[in-house]
Design a protein around this nucleic acid. Sequence first.
DNA 1: AAACAGGCCTAAA
DNA 2: TTTAGGCCTGTT
Length: 276
Amino acid sequence: MTQLYSENKILLCSAAELDLEKTFECGQCFRWNKKADGSYLGVAMDRAARLVSEDERIYIITKNDGYGKLWYDYFDLGLDYEAIRNSLKGGEYFKSCADFGAGIRILRQEGWEALCSFIISQCNNIPRIKGIVETLCRLFGNEICFEGEVMYTFPSADVVSGLTLHELEPLRCGYRAQYILSAAKVVASGGLDFESLKLMDTADAQAALMELSGVGAKVANCAVLFGLHKMDAFPIDVWMARALSEHFPKGFDPTSFGEYAGLAQQYIFYYARSGG
DNA sequence: AAACAGGCCTAAA
DNA sequence: TTTAGGCCTGTT
């Protein structure tokens, strides 16, 4: 098999700036998997990569295709998360959340992938979400060869819009299948443009996404935070609702966290999910 | 067996 | 505007 590009290993940042396990397993993404050697293997932006932590440094192994900047952006390395984390104030409990979540970064995932993934996520648990997303990619994504293994890209809205409910049956995603199809059709036809959504403020982008069938406040907010990288979006799911009512019984105002409320949300969510 | 899982939709007050 | 049921499916 001919290899067009060699794979190379690039230093990304320090392990303190990017905690692989927390970032990949805090619930924001579904396509990064921990391997036996502790590295994470995944696909994003139509490219496969392996992330490794060595000597307190994070390296990325990926094809040397000249698009290293993509990964720099994907991991949002232009932003000083430590400074933001220290600037977020929310009392004793939140301090525990923020300390626990040190090293989490909000990935710049693609809009369609985030939207589609979080449509699938509704009323599902993480292993099942990951399984459904993986099947979707395996059946309808493009093959890519990486380290001698075949991996799959996330299928475009264009491709998905051309599928039928019958073709989605192998996903076993139940009533969400029609939501996926209708969302794909709107996106593929230009009825929803992620570049345009990025220009809107968070509330407007969320409202636009909620026009889609099967997309409510929570899914829309996740798409805005993880797919548009609007860091003030504050998705509230059952875990968040529980944590907030328990620790902020007098009520809670997300805007008190300002422009990085979404990151604060992720700290609280991850802490709650981890049993805190 | 029955309830539940990272919601959403519809119908009814 | 808020609230109750139902919804696909897999797991406990």
